[in-house]
């Protein structure tokens, strides 16, 4: 086969061959989150699930107005729920490793995603978050829904400047 046409065939194949059921779209903008797992149902790039901001903001999410130890006064966070991101990636497991830009890692139990409305906030007061402002993603626990969450245990899990999530079996 002509070596020159191989990429074109591959590209065609990529278009024509059915991707795994419910596979994610390819990210169009800058990738801000990578979900990795030993087995993902809907990977899109190299066996991982990569998301840009637009992809994340189409997922089911929530808006919560609350106080946190790191902000002044009440602020409004919005973004996809952690469980809808994991569902979109088709990730299954018992715990998550949330990794920040500075390589800070926090262990988050899967229950925090399934039983709590924990979100991956993309916006603060409607504006996208820059790295300087704890962006691009911030794991926000529903402090507005449940006051019992307002303690150090959950503060340490509230990772900001998230770049990836590793799902452990």
């Amino acid at each position: 086969m002509n070596a020159r046409i191989l990429p074109a065939v591959l590209a065609l194949a990529a278009v024509l061959l059915p991707l795994p059921a419910g596979a994610l779209d390819l990210p169009k903008g800058e990738v801000i989150l990578t979900v990795t797992a030993t087995r993902l149902d809907h990977p899109n790039v190299d066996g991982t699930a990569q998301f840009d901001l637009a992809m994340l903001e189409t997922l089911a999410g929530r808006v919560g107005e609350m106080e946190t130890p790191w902000t002044e006064g009440k602020v409004k966070f919005s973004g996809p729920l952690l469980r809808s991101v994991l569902d979109a990636a088709g990730a299954h497991g018992t715990s998550l490793k949330v990794v920040a830009l500075n390589d800070y890692e926090a262990d988050v139990p899967m229950e925090d995603a399934t039983t709590l409305d924990t979100m991956l906030a993309t916006r603060i007061d409607g504006k996208p978050m820059s790295v300087r402002d704890k962006g691009p993603l911030f794991l926000v626990y529903p402090f507005d829904q449940n006051a019992d969450l307002f303690n150090e245990k959950y503060f340490s899990r509230s990772v900001w400047q998230i770049k990836s999530i590793k799902v452990a079996e």
Binding site: N102, S130, V131, R132, K134, Q161
Partner: peptide, 8 residues
Amino acid sequence: DILYSRMT
């Protein structure tokens, strides 16, 4: 940027 956010 990270340092900046830490400063904030």
